[in-house]
Write a protein that binds this DNA or RNA. Sequence first.
DNA 1: ATTCTTCTGGGCAATCTGTCCAGTAACGTC
DNA 2: GACGTTACTGGACAGATTGCCCAGAAGAAT
Lengths: 155, 155
Amino acid sequence: MTFDALDARLLLLLTDAPRLGVLECARRLGVARGTVQARLDRLSADGVLTGFPPELRLDALGYGLTAFAVLEIAQGRRGEVAEELAAIDEVCEVHATTGQGDLFVRMVARSNDDLQRVIDEVVGVSGVRRTSTSIALSTPVAPRVRPLLERIAQG
Amino acid sequence: MTFDALDARLLLLLTDAPRLGVLECARRLGVARGTVQARLDRLSADGVLTGFPPELRLDALGYGLTAFAVLEIAQGRRGEVAEELAAIDEVCEVHATTGQGDLFVRMVARSNDDLQRVIDEVVGVSGVRRTSTSIALSTPVAPRVRPLLERIAQG
DNA sequence: ATTCTTCTGGGCAATCTGTCCAGTAACGTC
DNA sequence: GACGTTACTGGACAGATTGCCCAGAAGAAT
């Protein structure tokens, strides 16, 4: 399973103009339409490209607060805890990590009160020992893949 | 600027079938084509919907390691540091947070050696005081917005 | 009651999609 | 070197979709 510069250029193109048609991509990349189609099919089939989820500004949706929590979990209950966390709507991301903390959680909320409620819900999950949370004040670098793609595309 | 259930249902639809056409969306939502078009235009214009970036499995791309770093920054140099971090390709996300740590960084790497290099680069940024890093062992909940949308869509 | 905004349902020309195909270039193998 | 495999090109086709426009209906606000 390979991923060459053309794949990267294609994905960059779709990053910039997501709802672009296959034909237009082919034109801009200077290759035949079938090639673009084949690449997209292959990337999807190989599981490299898992989709094109909409990118939303959550604050415009009413969820203006983002917070992080580091959870320390009781011995051997990590999987179980992770599952319960996944059931909380406001929990947008969970990682198991090395270090003193065991689980790292990203969550969102509508207001301070709402955040309080969400945090209570998170730390209230059975098996959670110690927690420490912090609030995101700003996001200088929003989630991105672009630089990596550009490198592969021979930027 | 509102965001109603139809908007949410539309975005859920596009989440599941990203490269779906406008007409097909209209059919599945049971509304006129023009409505779907208008909603998408409005969401984009309002800045709620910022795009449809490709969702990639970075490990399939060679970047199999994800690590997090909490950086403590010298007084008043946060913005400056954030800018330098943004210039590092492997840095995929940066948040300014409350708490003892000042900046929270997510980064990726190809291998342990590579991660070492990336970490060195990150902590080597001038203005970075103390750092603590940890590695993501697994990701029980990958970044998601779905539950929030479903709630708005009247789930 | 009147005005605005939004949605509907339809029509139009131009474009795109999915799907074929044959020819050609590139690559590894024997 | 000869051969087989794989990927890309360029072109064809019918059918579907897009962008755009419009008049009328339905609701909400004044």
